[in-house]
Nucleic acid binder design. Structure first.
Lengths: 361, 361
DNA sequence: TCCGGAAATGACAGCGCTGTCAATAGGATG
DNA sequence: CATCCTATTGACAGCGCTGTCATTTCCGGA
């Protein structure tokens, strides 16, 4: 059947298998004539080198592995819901890998497992990937970094928070994005702004909160404790926090939820409470999930270019795998975010906006 | 470093490498004592067999490949949006693969490419996967099936429409689901129901439409040509079709969109047209995308258990790879769908519902 | 014309496993 | 106790490539 080997190609081209190998790998010191002969044979036979043979014999496996949090994945699997971040990350990595003749493998990693170190060695040992992409929250699992470094496997961390000097990373300035979003609300005239924190397990939660607080401070706005509630990135938690925040006699004119899902929860709560968005309450999220453009009103949010980030990560790894030396390779890449102002944020109602100076004066 | 080989294990256990191999592969005729010795050594050394060596030497690669439509993927990638179907499919396949010690690889395939056959051989030749999962619309690409069959690689088709006798498949009864959904609307009292067809490229589009028509016929309801519009599964197309259908003096009391994204488009159109859902218009979709539970009103839709289906597919492939003979293996699996009635569907307003008999009497 | 060195090519030994087949060890049989 | 059969284990040859090192070829310069 299709089992064309390097021997067949060599025979047809009338050269040694080593020469075929040379042409295939674009090595130097190959004459034009040889290259042409081999190329012809390869094309005619439709030959493709066997991945396993290459990776067994040589030092590269043409494999990029993406490490994904197992818990999170299993949670998604249980609920039957997809994982938008994972999906976007993959698209980017997949496309870059494909363009460079690499393959992408997704591996689940449980950073809390007592056998983490062994599990990692296991995967790395059996796959021997040329590079590894770490997704949050694995990007910050120091044991994982340790193992990777011990084995000398290049890796790129997506959106890491701690130990920023280790390895390569591709990130977005979450703090600044949250800062900008807060400024967006302030510019609209909001002075009473609530915030819903994300799952503390994710670095992003802290950063987004810091950005919010910094912007509030800069604009001389008070951050009220009872208006900063802790969610966990789920719709439900958003609903609960929203309901709580909107229940009191005093309520904010705008709420900034640390991600879109929670924002939708708040939207639901507002709706049940008889509040119209953005008329009675401005609402902004973070992530630009697909739903953000379908919701009513459409949600103002921040778009993180996940696919691009993964693409960059894959490219960094592939260059690292192909370069002899580590010099001159990009190690840190900051991706640009976009604040997408849609319908859910607007100036506060005059009545409410006016109330503040009155109360203060 | 972590480079533990089978030789190390054999040495430590005081046996031959072949024996280690036997234990690892669970072969028969291995004494308890041997098994114990080897197991001890494996555990102590944290040994994992090299995937590439195994696949090079043996007949299995411990790899499952999922073939995904390249165009579609690139489209998603361009728009920066994730692909919910892909994501859910992957979760299922990933979890099953992981449980059985297999690995999952995603490969992009362009079924329209003139070099499709060669591309396929390429991938199959270099990866030598033990099984392949085909996702729509690749499930129906006969050239792909041809190549797979020629190579003798087991494959499972997810939701195929044509050539149902070829290969294995896991599917959902789309027609019946659409039928049920239509009945749902009819039972609520709707008699004037519009339908938005999906992208003709997908088999599901036709099936859903057939289900709709069959149910209408069974309930003695007329299918009006101007109330059956053709979209392409995108939000925008849903918006346009919705706007068109709702513009006329006569408009349906309910609209069934072939997928959720289009339903959201209709929702938007209805909203702009001053129509409240479900008060003035009942609206139902198909797919249960994440947004369906966050939208307002929450969308009535059909949930396809994509993750489960992929899980089943992976399991079928793994059993096929492990079985000596093909006998007794499951080849066809029908997955159960769920009609999720949420807020967007309700009885038509009395005024409108009453109008019909008046007009007819 | 001959020589040294760089450029181009080939020969060959594995990479870490599995498949095949041979060898050895126990048991049951007569 | 010899014989035969089966359960168990091992020896060894690759799988299809790449890395290393040897060999051949080709030039420019003496």
């Amino acid at each position: 059947m299709g089992a064309v080997t390097i021997y067949d190609v060599a025979e047809r081209a009338g050269v040694s298998i080593k020469s075929v190998s040379r042409v295939l790998n674009g090595e130097q010191n190959v004459s034009v004539a040889l290259r042409a002969k081999v190329q012809e044979a390869v094309d005619a036979l439709g030959y493709r080198p066997s991945l396993s043979a290459r990776s067994l014999a040589g030092s590269s496996s043409y494999l990029i592995a993406a490490f994904v949090d197992a818990d999170l994945t299993i949670e998604h699997w249980r609920s039957g819901r997809g994982n938008d971040y994972l999906s976007r990350m993959e698209l980017g990595a997949l496309i870059e890998a494909r363009n460079s003749g690499y393959h992408l493998m997704i591996e689940l990693v449980d950073p809390g497992s007592p056998t983490l170190e062994r599990d990692m060695s296991s995967v790395l040992g059996s796959l021997k990937p040329d590079g590894v992409i770490l997704t949050p929250p694995i990007s910050d699992a120091s044991v994982v970094l340790d193992v990777l470094e011990a084995r000398g496997t290049p890796y790129v961390r997506l959106g890491p928070e701690t130990q920023l000097d280790r390895g390569r990373r591709v990130y977005m300035d979450e703090r600044r994005a949250a800062f900008d979003m807060t400024v967006h609300l302030a510019r609209l005239g909001h002075r009473e702004i609530g915030f819903i924190v994300g799952n503390p397990r994710y670095a992003a939660s802290r950063l987004r909160r810091e950005g919010f607080e910094a912007a509030m401070a800069q604009h001389g706005l008070a951050v009220r404790d009872d208006w900063v509630l802790e969610g966990d990135f789920t719709f439900t938690s958003g609903f609960e926090c929203g309901a709580r925040m909107l229940a009191g006699a005093e309520r904010p004119t705008a709420i900034f939820a640390s991600n879109d899902d929670m924002a939708f929860g708040v939207l639901q709560a507002a709706s049940r409470g008889g509040l119209a968005v953005p008329a009675d309450l401005s609402l902004v999220g973070f992530d630009d999930t697909p739903s953000a453009q379908f919701s009513m009103p459409q949600l103002t949010t921040v778009r993180q270019p996940v696919a691009e980030m993964a693409e960059t990560a894959a490219r960094m790894l592939i260059s690292a795998a192909q370069a002899k030396t580590d010099d001159g390779l990009e190690r840190v890449h900051q991706a640009a975010y976009t604040l997408i102002a849609r319908e859910s944020s607007a100036p506060p109602r005059l009545a409410r906006a006016a109330r503040i100076p009155v109360g203060q004066g």
